[in-house]
Design a protein around this nucleic acid. Structure first.
Lengths: 301, 301
DNA sequence: GACATCCATGAGCTTTAGTCACAGAAAAGA
DNA sequence: TCTTTTCTGTGACTAAAGCTCATGGATGTC
């Protein structure tokens, strides 16, 4: 029986949060679309309500007090969470089930999203809410029903179902290597190399796999998403190691040329992950569908 | 830049949450201290705001719709979280630093709280916010700065500092065993045995340690807090295995008699735990103090 | 020293949140 | 079957909250 009594109104909290973020009532007012006076009042009212000085008035400016800073840090997260809850309810609408998922951005744009029409057709009652992520996170912390995971079967607190392994190819634009490719595979190391932030040892591993020994570091541009890496490679910025399933179209059209292959020695693969003890049955439905999709090839798209 | 626009007002969400919990506007109104009509309006307004039917009106009653149930589950947590944030800000007040900690209830009442006067005297600027827990949890999920952990150095995502190991003794009220104790240690197994929910194998381990072989199960009352177990043992409900530091007073007064000892073979101990990457400096101050306290004995209290 | 910029605040307006009183519908009980 | 009770829904109205506007005061800036 959670007694939620006497919470200050949302308007007060929103005003404070914005004011704290900008350390300026005027800018907060602008962001919120109200007058500066309104923000000034709201903040004072909140201070009165909780009996804490949130801002120090120094000169003509306002500065967050220590207590104010502590409150803002928590409050910002809480409000965002609340806002997410409401927005998800709106998105799900009547009768529908909402499935919130965390996805790897390029996996989503190039593989998942093109297939979603099929999912929607067979399960119109499930509304998806996709969030991309580039760094690891915990499933409970973010409120996510399902996540796409790349790596190994080692996510604490999560149940994993394997989708498919990854087949990596070394590629470059024909402008860099000619449409026939390189004479010798190792010549790629004379080209500029493009890197994915989260997989920094990839070139080093490839170097090693060609019997050239392991070299610790390779310079070159870094991108945190495959989509950028792909566009970079197509634009002739350098050679890139890319999963073949992401560049079917580019290989078919000749925008990229394959100049080597990388053996999947690590056994890394794509997985569907969901919190153990998940009760949302849409999770089951969706992950079944995903696995079915992963089994049959699809005309490049 | 989290745009939190057009959130329905807190009053709407509170009304909905209460109405959903009771599945009755009348009772919700009573809880919130407003009229039934107000709740009816608020819920309708929320439904209009998010475009979702939250209640089905069946007969003279209201029932949560599927969407309503989903929303309530999330919303209840969000509101509680928000309420916690505000209440902590109020508790901390001006200038003070708040330290939220999760404690084992009996550890807190018998060991920690009696020593807190000392902490408060030396660090008046740190306000403590204690929450007891009896089941494992993740530090980030609940927003806790510090936790007292019993067991091993194995809490994922947490940094641990050891406080002290636990010394377990087998005890019973003198009414059960006489003030001189038992003739033979194993005679304790003829007495009713009291259990701590979270340590179900304790009697079995003790049985084994006396060279009597491991027996899988022992019947007997179960309690989820040591404090209950202690009172149960004092009241003569049965024999109990208890940490000596919790029952110094009872042993001294003769309310409990020691009838055996348990070797700490598992190496379990008490730890201070805090999220890795913790920046709140009060955490450091508090855990230093805790460790200092754990080193010097204290007159039984 | 004049100016611009920002926060504070009194007066007044608008919207929101709630009360009151009663209507309508459906269970419960006689 | 016919009350009676117990819900929710709603029109009319009131109180309060939330804002705006206009202006004053303080403090940097050029």
């Amino acid at each position: 029986m959670p007694r939620i009594n006497a919470l200050p109104s949302l308007a007060l909290m929103r005003s404070f949060e914005a004011a704290a973020r900008h350390e300026s009532y005027t800018m907060a007012a602008e962001e919120l679309g109200v007058t500066q006076g309104a923000v000034s009042r709201q903040v004072r009212e909140l201070e009165a309500a909780i009996g804490v000085t949130l801002f120090r008035r120094v000169g003509r400016a306002v500065r967050l007090s220590k207590a104010g800073r502590a409150l803002r840090e928590e409050l910002a997260g809480d409000l965002e969470r609340l806002s997410g809850t409401i927005n998800r309810a709106i998105a799900a609408g009547d009768g529908a089930t909402l499935l919130t998922m965390a996805v790897l951005p390029t996996f989503a744009t190039r593989w998942l999203v093109p297939r979603l029409a099929d999912f929607k057709a067979s399960h119109p009652e499930i509304v998806l809410d996709l969030h991309s992520y580039t760094t690891p996170f915990s499933l409970e912390e973010r409120r996510v029903d399902v996540a796409i995971h790349f790596g190994h079967d080692d996510w604490p607190g999560a149940a994993l179902r394997k989708l498919f392994p990854e087949h990596l190819v070394v590629t470059a634009a024909p402008a860099l290597v000619g449409s026939a490719g390189l004479d010798e595979k190792q010549d790629v190391f004379d080209l500029p190399l493009l890197h994915l932030t989260s997989r920094s040892e990839q070139w080093s591993d490839y170097h090693d796999s060609l019997g050239l020994g392991a070299r610790a570091v390779f310079p070159g541009m870094r991108f945190d998403q495959f989509s950028m890496l792909i566009e970079g490679a197509v634009a002739g910025l350098g050679a890139a190691i890319l999963p073949s399933y992401l560049i079917e179209a580019e290989l078919a059209s000749g925008a990229l040329v394959e100049i080597g292959q990388v053996a999947n020695v690590s056994g890394s693969a794509y997985y569907v992950a969901f919190p153990t003890g998940q009760k949302n049955e849409a999770v089951q439905v969706f992950s079944d569908w995903l696995i079915k999709q992963s089994k049959h090839r699809r005309s490049a798209g």
